[in-house]
Design a protein around this nucleic acid. Structure first.
Lengths: 200, 200
DNA sequence: TCCTTTTTTGAGTGATCATTCAAATACGAG
DNA sequence: CTCGTATTTGAATGATCACTCAAAAAAGGA
């Protein structure tokens, strides 16, 4: 067996997420990608096939990370609804911890709004990933309902879509140049809305 | 005085809005622009200065049209809150009238999420335009409060931001490939939330 | 140490990018 | 009808686009 690959695929994908999340798809040139991943064209194309192939894998890596973060917050909270509130509020902290996110808005939404019909495969992929997230939200809500946290008449699929839309809006709004405390107040307002669905 | 210009500036800008709203900024090449506006490079640069100059004017044209539409709905409604509800629901109709919008999401938000820091002027412009819209919403809410439609303790600037965020989220969500009736249900859910701010 | 095999390199591909400008064109005044 | 001027045209600019591939480099087995 000869020579082994020098780079770490996961590290490369993390760097690709950082770049694409920050600059978007079309504005990220192969020059940017070469620099960000410290790889030359030959290696890049041998490994990921194409720019859109790399982007597709970066999207998956992003969604996996985001999903982990979500589950972590929910499971670390004293209740599902409280967890959802904390999740909403988490987007109001501009610098959470030491690792600054390259953008406030969700990378999936940035992609959904940026990529046009010519790159249909990417659109389809993003759509499916958002549907998966929506279903994950729905399952968490069903669970909360079973535990008696939510009113029995709450339609979980509908509330899940509403929640996803709130998150999309909040994170997109946060891209604006607005003081952090106002974003926090906005997140609070959204979190408070969840109380209307609570039991009792 | 010699030769007058052959094209109509407003018509050209409307076509530019159509193109940019649909394809976004970076993915709209000068080739696309020449075709959409039926103008050759010389005329384009003599008239609008540059691609970003044209885009900036298109943004203004878009915002003016959107603002007109908003005011029209509010003024044609039996009350401000009812008008806002209708406005929210208006984004659930996929083909409103004969003129199909080139995208569901707001062109300002698409721009906010697409354009990176290198085109700082465009970002600044979009930010200012969104702030203007937010203020317009706030004024409408203040007016509703003065008329006794909204509870006296409603903080209008805060509710205006919340509303803007809801609209951003709804329109971005609608970019997904989701059945029209589900979007309509989502818009209804959002409209219903406004009742919590109504008087007694 | 040398050989085999895989990876990495980076110059080069044609296409397309935004932009420029000299020449051709067409309109209004006289 | 002719002239003067502003507009329109479209070829040409150098830069950059995503991508290819032959040659150089490097790691493991002998």
């Amino acid at each position: 067996m000869p020579r082994t690959a020098r780079f770490d695929r996961q590290v490369a994908l993390d760097r690709a997420v950082e770049l694409f999340w920050s600059r978007g798809y079309y504005a990220s040139s192969m020059k940017h990608i070469e620099a960000a991943l410290d790889m030359r064209p030959g290696s890049l194309y041998a490994t990921f096939g194409s720019k859109s192939g790399l982007f597709a894998e970066a999207l998956e890596a992003y969604a996996a990370r985001a999903g982990d973060g979500f589950r972590q917050i929910i499971e670390g909270s004293p209740g599902v609804v409280e967890g959802l509130k904390r999740y909403l509020r988490s987007f109001a902290r501009p610098c959470s911890g030491y690792a600054q996110a390259p953008a406030q808005a969700c990378m999936l939404i940035k992609t959904l709004l940026e990529v046009n019909a010519e790159d249909a495969a990417l659109r389809t992929q993003v759509d499916a990933m958002l549907a998966t997230i929506e279903q994950g939200l729905c399952e968490v809500l069903e669970q909360a309902k079973a535990m008696g946290e939510l009113r029995a008449d709450v339609e979980c699929p509908r509330l899940a879509r509403l929640l996803q839309t709130q998150i999309i809006g909040l994170r997109a709004f946060a891209e604006r140049n607005v003081p952090a405390d106002q974003i926090a107040a906005l997140a609070d307002d959204m979190a408070d809305m969840l109380d209307a669905y609570r039991t009792g």
